[in-house]
Simulated assay, not measured.
Amino acid sequence: MDTQLRIERRAITHPDAEALVEAVQEEYVARYGGRDESPIDPRDFEDPLGQFFVGYLDGSPVATGAWRRSAVRALGAEVTAEIKRMYVVPAAQRRGLARRMLAHLEATAAEAGIEALVLETGMKQPEAISLYLSSGYEPVPGFGHYCGSELSRCFGRVLPD
């Protein structure tokens, strides 16, 4: 399989996006015993509020990533967006695709005037925590649906100008 990831902007309601979002929900059930209950409005991922992307290898949807504008203030930034639905299917993992999707999210958010990205992940996703820390993200105060949960970890990164 070619490792050239083609990233396309999609609506979160696009069939490829929906299938991958369902796959990540199944991953949450396996790791945490339940689906992610963070409120999601599909309009959050439409301009000017946010953007949703699907990554393809050889025409097959294998990855997702999205950002939505956020009221969270972190790292001195006034204009932030939250990363959501970062996921790579197991068959395509360990090839740097998540890192490529993350870089794409950072670039598109910066183009939209976002100063910093924030995100919430969980302790049962050590590979995600490793990705974010190795990509320049740092711990920020808890926020969002799981704020205060012992399993929740929040990170942020100021985007380059």
Results as ranks from 00 to 15, higher is better:
Cys154Glu: 08
Glu8Lys: 11
Asp47Leu: 12
Tyr28Val: 02
Ile7Tyr: 13
Gly156Val: 00
His104Met: 04
Ser70Arg: 06
Arg6Pro: 03
Cys154Ile: 00
Met101Ser: 08
Cys154Met: 05
Gly50Asp: 01
Glu111Met: 12
Asp44Ala: 02
Ala116Cys: 10
Ser152Tyr: 00
Ser152Ala: 13
Ala66Glu: 01
Asp58His: 01
Asp44Ile: 02
Ala128Met: 06
Arg35Leu: 10
Glu37Gln: 09
Gly76Thr: 01
Val79Ala: 12
Ala19Ser: 13
Arg68Pro: 05
Val24Asn: 12
Thr121His: 07
Val62Phe: 09
Arg157Glu: 13
Asp2Ala: 15
Gly156Ala: 01
Ala92Gly: 02
His104Leu: 04
Arg69Tyr: 00
Gly144Leu: 12
Ala30Ile: 10
Ser149Leu: 07
Gly122Pro: 07
Gly34Thr: 07
Glu115Thr: 03
Arg73Ile: 13
Ala128Glu: 00
Gly76His: 04
Ala81Ile: 02
Cys154His: 06
Ile129Arg: 12
Ala30Arg: 14
Ala71Thr: 11
Ile83Thr: 08
Asp161Lys: 15
Gly96Tyr: 03
Phe53Ser: 05
Arg69Pro: 05
Ala19Phe: 08
Glu111Arg: 13
Arg99His: 15
Leu57Gly: 03
Arg94Pro: 08
Val140Arg: 02
Gly33Ile: 08
Glu120Lys: 02
Pro90Lys: 07
Ala74Met: 03
Ala116Gly: 09
Glu120Met: 01
Glu106Leu: 12
Val62Leu: 11
Ser130Met: 10
Ala71Leu: 14
Ala63Lys: 04
Val118Phe: 12
Ala63Asn: 08
Arg43Cys: 10
Ala103Val: 05
Cys154Asp: 01
Glu120Ile: 05
Arg100Trp: 15
Lys124Met: 15
Ala17Asn: 06
Val140Phe: 03
Arg31His: 14
Leu57Asp: 01
Ile83Gln: 02
Ala110Tyr: 09
Glu27Met: 14
Glu46Trp: 01
Pro126Gly: 06
